[in-house]
Amino acid sequence: MTPPPIEFLLYGGALALVALGLAGLVMARHLFRSILALGILEAGANLLLVLAGYRAGGVAPILTPGTLGQPMVDPVPQALVLTAIVIGVGVQALALALALRVHQAYGTLDVAEVRGRMEADTDAAAGLEPETSRDLPAVERPS
């Protein structure tokens, strides 16, 4: 059996990272872990972008006496990914700060529990009974 070609491995790895990140986002029961899964999804997307700019046999896009005149890999996706990585860490820091606030307000980071208590809070703020508001048709709700 011949080993799979290298591009299959690289694209497969990048897509596996994307799929794992998505699965983690959907599956996570803990807000902190969904932030981590977002990071994995982002890493997979970055790898995919850099792969799109790779040129077989090319050299890094930096001019030195040794690389003049040789084919180079595409620099534009690399610049994009550079931007994406730095923005990613900013987004992560903001998400963590918001998660810390949620933890301050509710004392837990369990996704289901936080959602339940948030809905109860909005119901209370709207003046609805906590339990009747969800299952009854809209016309029968106390207004």
């Binding site: 792969l51 799109a52 040129r55 046999g57 595409d74």
Partner: peptide
């Protein structure tokens, strides 16, 4: 793979 189709980079 290995042949980026983008013209901007060139």
């Amino acid at each position: 793979y290995g042949h980026p189709p983008m013209l901007v980079g060139q």
